[in-house]
Design a protein around this nucleic acid. Structure first.
Lengths: 138, 138
DNA sequence: TTCGTTGCAAAGGATTTGCAGCGTA
DNA sequence: TACGCTGCAAATCCTTTGCAACGAA
């Protein structure tokens, strides 16, 4: 899936397409891992020297609202985002160092057994957290 | 497990036992669910009119450092805490309304299959989020 | 008395918002 | 032109920290 598909989808939904927004999407699409606002602005400032953090946050909020990216929080307080997975439902190994992810095929939900009486399931999360080969302490 | 057990454990570890700290522990122990700093101070101010939020945070940090409570974050940005589970490893149904929890006996980790090459697993999380019978929208 | 605990004030970090000017369509 | 997007400044929310007074052991 390429950036232009997302970009034209945004256009269809009434958003303007700006270079900054396209580049945020492009960066997320080409980095299949969790990325924070700080990393994004550090990267994008190379091209847009005056880019503000507010713009990054506003764009992240837009992309999140439109379901194009997913938000998650790990050890630190900073929210991290990754491009929404298009393939069938799955979970991830997540590296606490660089945010990179690897797919886990198994989902615990089918084996869940009984749901408490009257409980309405809204979502579930299953993440295996650790350090990838590159980030593992030697 | 009762409050005094925790309290004397704290004393053994070099902490002072204050009424506020005892009451925080007591509240967590008698409420088997996720609780935030705001709820705690609202409750404790009934008894300690001058209790400060900083004290609540400092005590939560102490209890977390000592492994007596567990921290987690859900939809909002506020950290939530619950008394650490003493029984064998398990996961929870968590109500996004009131923070109440129900034990899930199954753990997905044994069925995980292959871990990515060089990946060091540090922890995992599996939560089923939703609304309990009391909090479910009618 | 000693040293951990607390309240107050202030600082911090992440994220959001008001507003006026700018840029896309 | 119209209205969404952006930067700037400022505000919010949650949490942490410095400091001096207080209190448990």
């Amino acid at each position: 899936m390429h950036t232009e598909v997302y970009v034209s989808e945004l256009k269809d939904r009434g958003y303007r397409v700006t270079g900054k927004r396209r580049d945020i999407l492009d960066y997320m699409l080409s980095h299949d891992r969790y990325i924070g606002a700080r990393e994004l602005i550090d990267y994008l400032r190379q091209k847009y020297a005056t880019l503000s953090l507010e713009t990054v946050y506003r764009n992240l909020k837009t992309l999140r609202d439109e379901g194009m990216i997913e938000e998650s929080r790990f050890e630190d307080h900073e929210a991290k985002y990754r491009i929404s997975c298009q393939s069938s439902h799955h979970h991830h190994f997540v590296c606490l160092g660089c945010g990179c992810t690897t797919v886990i095929d198994t989902c615990p939900m089918p084996d869940l057994g009984m749901v408490p009486n009257g409980f309405t399931v809204v979502q579930h999360r299953f993440d295996v957290l650790g350090y990838c080969a590159k980030c593992s302490p030697k």
